[in-house]
Computed example of a mutant assay.
Amino acid sequence: MRLLAVLLLSLAATLPARAADRVVFATNWKAQAAHGGFYQALAGGTYAKAGLAVEIRQGGPQVNNRPLLPAGRIDFLMTGNLLHSFDNAKNGVPVVVVAAMFQKDPQALLAHPGQFKAFADLKNADVAWIAKDAQFSWWQWLKSDHGFRDEKLKPYNYQLGPFLSNRRSVQQGYAIEEPIAVERAGGFKPEVHLLADHGFSTYSTTIEARRETVEKNPELVRRFVEASILGWVNYLYGDRRAADALIKRDNPDMTDDTIARSIALMKSLGIVDSGEAQVAGIGAMKPERVKDFFDKMVRAGLYKPGEVDLSKVVDYRFVNKGVGVDVAKRLGGGK
């Protein structure tokens, strides 16, 4: 028996190691701190330990990675919030959400300090600088649930000047980016009113996969999702220097200061590791919350009742397992 064991060990040593599964993961914008967990999983070897050879392809203003997923040219896609996912299910696009890295959508309204006492008062601003696409999505929810009015609208063209020059105006902003730009350009910290803290209950920074991949290779999906979760834990609470180097390589406009400030905002606002994620793990998703958000979007007039089969929006098998919760606590996070 001992001789047999030695022979088996010798045979195993001569066999080639199993090749890692090649995975192409695309994001929806240029590399930044909001993508940090994925870069951490790559730089820190977490994907490699999961048997994955991952290529991250960044998006950008001239890059639309979305149609590449159903076409089979990429394996996973980082996208925005559940509105995109509802549209996919409504239109029969054969993709499904398998995780949500952000418990809160970072979309926010920014205001000058001391001009408005509460979120409810923002609807009384002189002007609301809102981009066209937002006017036809979450602005409709602000109208239905919070009484905002179209006559306040002005198109936001991603220039800060109009907002900075009018103290009684409000402006849309990605809560982990625009406040940094406002502080640099205007010399003050804007008040950040996160829509998620006032009922905009969507998950964000979701991971989508082709339905075919989920059905035929769920083990691949599980490994990618869980490695990404661990990447986010280590990016928020561990040594992120190697990940930041990859981010700056892909996006040379990104700086250490911007990344550090963005991460600080992620933590203070509870964007990634809050609520359900602190028990069920980063990436957590619940069907009750998906339905709650859909019902709000119906009330806002974006969908009709029953128009979207919610069972086709998310596959919950790959999250809610507490992956990384112990690691976050050990590193001083997850509180």
Score class of each variant (00 low, 15 high):
Leu195Glu: 01
Ala26His: 00
Asp309Asn: 02
Val233Thr: 14
Phe163Ala: 08
Asn166Asp: 11
Asp257Tyr: 03
Asn251His: 13
Thr202Lys: 03
Val24Asp: 01
His193Lys: 00
Arg184Asn: 09
Thr27His: 02
Gly199Ser: 00
Ala34Arg: 04
Val24Gly: 11
Trp138Leu: 00
Ile259Cys: 06
Val182Tyr: 13
Asp250Phe: 06
Thr205Gly: 08
Arg210Glu: 10
Phe293Gly: 04
Asp105Lys: 00
Ala185Leu: 10
Leu11Asn: 08
Gly92Asn: 10
Leu7Pro: 03
Gly322Met: 05
Asp253Val: 12
Lys117Trp: 01
His112Tyr: 07
Met78Ala: 13
Val225Asn: 02
Leu246Phe: 11
Lys267Thr: 12
Gln58Lys: 01
Val272Ala: 05
Glu177Asp: 13
Asn88Lys: 05
Tyr158Cys: 06
Phe200His: 03
Leu77Lys: 00
Ala134Pro: 00
Ala33Cys: 13
Pro70Tyr: 06
Leu77Pro: 12
Lys291Thr: 12
Asp126Cys: 05
Ile282Ala: 13
Gln103Asp: 09
Leu310Gly: 10
Ala12Met: 11
Ala108His: 11
Arg261Asn: 14
Phe224Val: 05
Gly281Asp: 04
Val63Gln: 00
His146Phe: 11
Ala89Asp: 05
Ala89Gly: 12
Leu153Trp: 15
Arg249Ala: 09
Ile229Leu: 03
Lys216Met: 04
Leu82Pro: 12
Ala245Cys: 08
Pro190Glu: 07
Thr258Leu: 11
Val327Phe: 02
Gln62Asn: 15
Gln115Asn: 09
Leu3Pro: 15
Gln159Tyr: 10
Trp138Ser: 00
Arg2Cys: 00
Ser10Glu: 06
Met1Val: 08
Gly275Leu: 04
Phe293Leu: 03
Ile74Cys: 11
Leu3Thr: 15
Thr46Gly: 14
Phe224Arg: 00
Gly45Gln: 03
Pro94Ile: 01
Ala242Leu: 06
Val214Asn: 06
Leu246Val: 14
Ser274Cys: 08
Ala17Ser: 14
Pro61Thr: 01
Val319Trp: 00
Leu230Thr: 07
Ile259Met: 06
Asn217Cys: 03
Asp256Ile: 14
Gly60His: 00
Arg168Phe: 10
Lys304Ile: 05
Gly45Asp: 07
Ala118Cys: 10
Leu230Trp: 04
Val170His: 06
Val97Thr: 15
Leu142Asn: 09
Val54Phe: 09
Val221Ser: 15
Gly270Val: 00
Arg299Leu: 08
Leu8Tyr: 09
Ala125His: 02
Gly270His: 06
Phe318Glu: 03
Trp232Asp: 09
Lys248Tyr: 05
Asn124Arg: 09
Glu219Thr: 15
